[in-house]
Simulated scan of single mutants.
Amino acid sequence: MAKMVLLAAHLTVAGQDLSASANKIELKVEVDEKDVTTYGSLGWKELLGGLKGGELSLEFKQDVATGQLDSIMWPLLGTVVPFAARLDQAAVGPSNPSYNGSVLIKAWSPMEGSVGDEASVKVSYPTSGQVLRAVA
């Protein structure tokens, strides 16, 4: 199995390439577990998968200049927008899948940090609808 170091991940939110602003991307997709254990299970739990959902967690280096990160994200607050993320900026393919879906922009932190800190923003957005894995 190949190993890799994340050096040039790709991220778009609402059609805007935010790769140059992001320094952390985490996409987590889960399925609810539903307990369907009966007396016939002979003392063993039986589980089925239920609803699927996910969360896109991001960390950005803040930029409040016109046309940059803050002016892109602020108007999106409260909306559901498309996203795409992949491990490398190279073309989408079997060795570089793209994960695509929509997220609810439920929060934005224009200011975060202490004296002497770099200006960064940490956010987590729930997915809305299906998350797809594309290789072409």
Rank of each mutant, 00 (worst) to 15 (best):
L18T: 02
A20C: 08
A22V: 08
N23F: 11
I25L: 14
L27P: 01
L27G: 03
K28A: 14
K28P: 01
E30Y: 12
E30F: 12
V31W: 00
E33F: 00
K34W: 02
K34R: 13
V36M: 03
V36C: 04
T37C: 12
Y39E: 06
Y39A: 13
Y39H: 06
G40W: 02
G40T: 06
G43I: 06
W44L: 07
K45I: 06
E46K: 13
L48K: 13
G49C: 07
G49Q: 12
G49W: 03
G50D: 09
G50V: 09
G50Q: 10
G53C: 00
G54A: 09
E55I: 04
E55K: 10
L56A: 02
S57M: 04
L58N: 03
L58W: 01
F60Y: 09
F60P: 00
Q62A: 15
D63R: 04
V64S: 15
A65C: 08
A65R: 15
T66A: 14
G67P: 06
G67V: 13
L69E: 00
L69V: 05
M73G: 02
M73D: 01
M73V: 04
P75F: 01
P75M: 06
L76I: 08
L76D: 03
L76V: 06
L77T: 09
L77Y: 09
G78W: 04
T79S: 15
T79M: 12
V80K: 09
P82Y: 05
P82K: 02
F83N: 03
F83G: 00
F83V: 01
A85P: 00
A85R: 01
R86T: 00
Q89M: 14
Q89D: 15
Q89C: 11
A90Y: 06
A90G: 12
A91T: 05
A91M: 05
V92K: 00
G93H: 01
P94G: 08
P94H: 02
S95K: 10
S95F: 03
S95N: 09
N96H: 10
N96W: 05
N96R: 10
P97L: 05
P97Q: 07
P97W: 06
S98G: 05
S98C: 07
N100E: 15
G101N: 12
G101Q: 08
S102V: 03
S102I: 00
V103Y: 01
L104T: 04
K106P: 02
A107V: 14
P110N: 10
P110S: 11
P110H: 11
M111T: 12
E112D: 10
E112M: 15
E112W: 12
E112F: 13
G113V: 03
S114W: 06
V115G: 07
V115P: 03
V115W: 07
G116H: 07
G116K: 06
G116I: 08
D117L: 11
E118G: 04
E118Q: 08
V121C: 08
K122D: 14
V123A: 14
V123K: 05
S124R: 13
Y125Q: 02
Y125D: 02
Y125F: 10
T127Y: 04
T127W: 02
T127K: 04
T127L: 04
S128G: 07
S128V: 15
G129E: 15
Q130C: 06
L132M: 12
L132Y: 10
A134S: 11
A134I: 09
